[in-house]
Amino acid sequence: MLIHHGADRPARLDRRLACSLALIAGALNSAGFYSLGFFAANMTGNVSTGADKIALGDVFSGAVYLLLPVAFIFGAALATMLVEAGLRRRIARIFALSILAEAAMLCVLGVLDMLDHGRGTVLILGLSTLMGFQNAVVTRISNWRVRTTHISGMSTDIGIGLGMLLTMVRHREASASRVEHLERLRLHGMTVLAFCVGGVLGVIAYKALGGVLLFIAAALLAAVTLPGLLRRPLRPVPPAPPAPPMKQER
């Protein structure tokens, strides 16, 4: 799930990865809003709310909202540099290691929350950074087919897919194109559903367990990486020896 990447990546791996990480991201996003009053991954809403508060004179709160997209972008840039460094060094497990790094950083946030829950601004900026981090890793490994931390783009893709399918049915176009659009709809629909289910479970878990939810999410992220980390790397195929020169007939 975290080994194969690029255009040839099987669709089933995209679905498994999208559902797993969208579930966790939905839980963290909803729990963050329930606990701190901020969405860690809703960049459109954060920018709009920040602009609104600044316009109404609440400059400090507006600045916090506007810092969230900065944190999200920083996390995405950090993940991209990490992944690119690993790919350039031919580290086969770089995507699994990146998600494992996210799990470790989430544990740090969990410790901060346990020590001082009053550091709400630090916690929500940290969560936003991790959402950007995760989204960049998943986007890169799936060749830009999957997003897991927000559903605005996927909702648009679902609408486009439905429109394309209805158009194809109306004009009786080839079924091969329909299969491709149906596969995309399946991927995006499952991702949105997983994000929603994660949001419900996240709030329920946070009400019952508090900041322990961050450690549970970190453990789930680490579990997602295990198959990729434990898989034995494939041995490169040695090049074939050069063919002996042919003897010329006399």
Rank of each mutant, 00 (worst) to 15 (best):
L67G: 12
A55R: 09
R232S: 07
W144I: 06
F215C: 04
A76T: 09
L165C: 07
V192Q: 02
F195D: 01
M81E: 09
L193A: 15
V83M: 11
I73P: 01
V192C: 12
A104F: 07
L185T: 08
P10Q: 03
A243H: 10
L162R: 01
S61E: 14
C107F: 05
D52A: 14
P244Y: 08
N143A: 15
S175Y: 10
G228I: 08
V137I: 15
G62C: 13
E180A: 13
Y65W: 08
I54M: 15
R184K: 14
E180L: 11
L78M: 13
A174E: 15
L193R: 04
L130N: 01
R16S: 10
A11Y: 08
A55W: 09
G110I: 10
L13P: 00
M246Y: 06
A217C: 14
M154G: 10
A18M: 09
V146A: 06
R88C: 10
T139K: 05
M190C: 08
P241E: 07
N29M: 11
D113T: 07
R147G: 14
Y65T: 07
L125S: 01
G45V: 08
L36N: 04
R184I: 10
M43S: 09
R186Q: 13
L56S: 14
V197K: 00
V59I: 15
G120P: 08
A92P: 03
A217F: 01
G118N: 13
